[in-house]
């Protein structure tokens, strides 16, 4: 490949990086502006918006509320997802394709349709809008992601290990608990973090299934509708730093675990 092409391509990459980072960078920057008015120029700087966020008990409560929802829904997604993955991976049975299609369905339904389908179904089941409904909707929506990640990992598990365990007298449950599950740990951790982020960041389901208490994205949305303010920047920046940190940590962790397993 000639050099001109290469330089052109690397320029598109870095332009894309700019496109992805500049908006977020500007958003963070505006959170330090000493004025109620969002936009350039910035004449003086302040940390007041941040101290405001950390001393506002309502906002802190919303943070906690979102985290609790994320953790609970992730727990459900992971248990169900691992179970479905074990059923689907490496097994042939009548209706496999239909089962797989059903499994992937929640991930393919466009956001708004998924949200109102859950809203309608919650009413049928008698679940009131609120925390329970959000946890349930997030859990169902995130199951396919767990299944896909765990299935990928499961397909690399050497069959001989299970057979060895069975020959040594372990029944299927023991073999699963002692061989399969430990082998799946990196995949489960990776999937969990992914679910946590999906749930913490989710707006549309939380919006339609929420009661009077907003989750963090719903709170930011409500604040935005009544106008931009550096206070929103501060809240959004805290959320951004949290999600990015968790994501990077998980990425590093799963990569290291994968390497160790290959070695």
């Amino acid at each position: 490949m000639n050099r001109g092409n290469r330089i052109l391509l690397s320029c598109t990459y870095w332009a894309f990086v700019l496109y992805v980072f500049v908006p977020l960078f500007l958003m963070i920057l505006m959170g330090f502006k000493d004025s109620k008015f969002i936009g350039f120029p910035i004449r003086s700087w302040t940390l007041d918006w941040y101290t405001g966020v950390f001393s506002d008990s309502e906002i802190l409560y919303t943070f906690g509320y979102s985290v609790v929802i994320a953790v609970l829904s992730t727990l459900i997604s992971v248990i169900v997802g691992v179970w479905i993955a074990v059923l689907l991976e490496g097994r042939k049975f009548w209706g496999w394709t239909v089962t797989f299609a059903l499994m992937i369905l929640p991930a393919l339904v466009p956001g708004i349709i998924s949200a109102i389908a859950f809203r309608i179904y919650a009413r049928l089941l008698g679940i009131e809008p609120g925390m329970g409904a959000i946890v349930w909707a997030h859990a169902v929506h995130n199951v396919p992601f767990v299944v896909l990640v765990v299935m990928a990992r499961l397909s690399t598990l050497p069959k001989s290990q299970i057979e060895a365990a069975r020959d040594l007298g372990a029944d299927p449950l023991i073999a699963f608990m002692r061989i399969t599950l430990p082998y799946l740990v990196p995949a489960i951790l990776g999937a969990s973090v992914f679910c946590l982020l999906l749930s913490f960041d989710d707006f549309v389901r939380s919006f339609f299934l929420g009661g009077y208490e907003p989750t963090l994205p719903v709170l930011i949305f409500a604040m935005l509708r009544s106008g931009m303010s550096p206070e929103i920047n501060a809240i959004a920046t805290v959320a951004l730093v949290l999600t990015a940190a968790v994501g990077i940590w998980a990425e590093r962790f799963t990569r290291r675990a994968n390497k160790e397993n290959q070695a």
Binding site: V20, P23, M27, F40, D201, I220, L224, A239, L240, I248
Partner: peptide
């Protein structure tokens, strides 16, 4: 990974970032 990091940030936060970028006193107009 560099490209993945911003995509972990939620829909609302990123939408807000675009609002700031494109506003009348935003960076593009500046």
């Amino acid at each position: 990974l560099l490209l993945l990091v911003p995509f972990w940030v939620g829909e609302i936060v990123r939408t807000y970032a675009i609002m700031i970028l494109l506003g009348n006193t935003g960076a593009v107009n500046l």
